[in-house]
Design a protein around this nucleic acid. Structure first.
Length: 169
DNA sequence: GCCAACGTTGGC
DNA sequence: GCCAACGTTGGC
């Protein structure tokens, strides 16, 4: 039984189109202990994730990815030229982990954060809670599938919209 | 560019 | 181990 995740990335750093092009990438640069522990203790190959873009106009969900490896040592911590270099980290016991993900799909257009905020099925989603800044958060299966429906534009309206028109004479 | 929220750091 | 100061995130 897979788990489901929402992975945030600033869109000018790495986009869903970059992932579509690369096919597979290391989700590196995580420097938060809680998120590291998610990747170490709970994330497993075969899990699915929503790719979420932050610091973008509009912010929102842009596609789906699949976890192929989890809890892998993040090489950027040992790279003195990287913004994520951590000189205190011991190569024999790396402080920071990453996961590897592969492209699954890009939504035809971004599903804006604002749209997700308005959806009753997503009201408990952590990303919508005030002050939540974790770059990876768990999703329930129903949140994951709802985001997929909305993102693909296949969601049924809750109340059928009838366009009233005057009969032509 | 503002600012609320949160994590981290470091003096004591 | 407390907690003030500081840095970062990220929506708006």
């Amino acid at each position: 039984m897979p788990s489901f995740w929402l992975l945030k990335c600033e869109s000018d750093v790495y986009s869903i189109h970059d992932l579509a092009r690369d096919g597979r990438t290391g989700w590196d640069g995580v420097r938060n202990y809680q998120v590291r522990n998610f990747m170490r203790d709970a994330m497993r190959p075969g899990d699915f994730g929503v790719f979420y873009r932050s610091n973008a106009e509009p912010p929102g969900a842009v596609g789906v990815l699949k976890v192929v490896r989890a809890g892998v040592a993040d090489p950027t911590q040992f790279d003195p030229n990287s913004d994520y270099h951590d000189p205190k980290s011991d190569p024999k016991a790396p402080t920071w982990l990453m996961c590897e993900v592969e492209f699954v799909e890009a939504f035809p257009k971004v599903l804006p954060l604002e749209r997700m905020r308005g959806d009753p099925g997503l009201s408990e989603m952590l990303i919508l809670k005030r002050g939540n800044r974790l770059s990876i958060t768990p999703l329930t299966e129903s949140e994951f599938s709802r985001i997929g429906e909305l993102g693909r534009g296949q969601a049924q309206p809750r109340t059928p919209t009838v366009i009233a028109s005057k009969p032509k004479r």
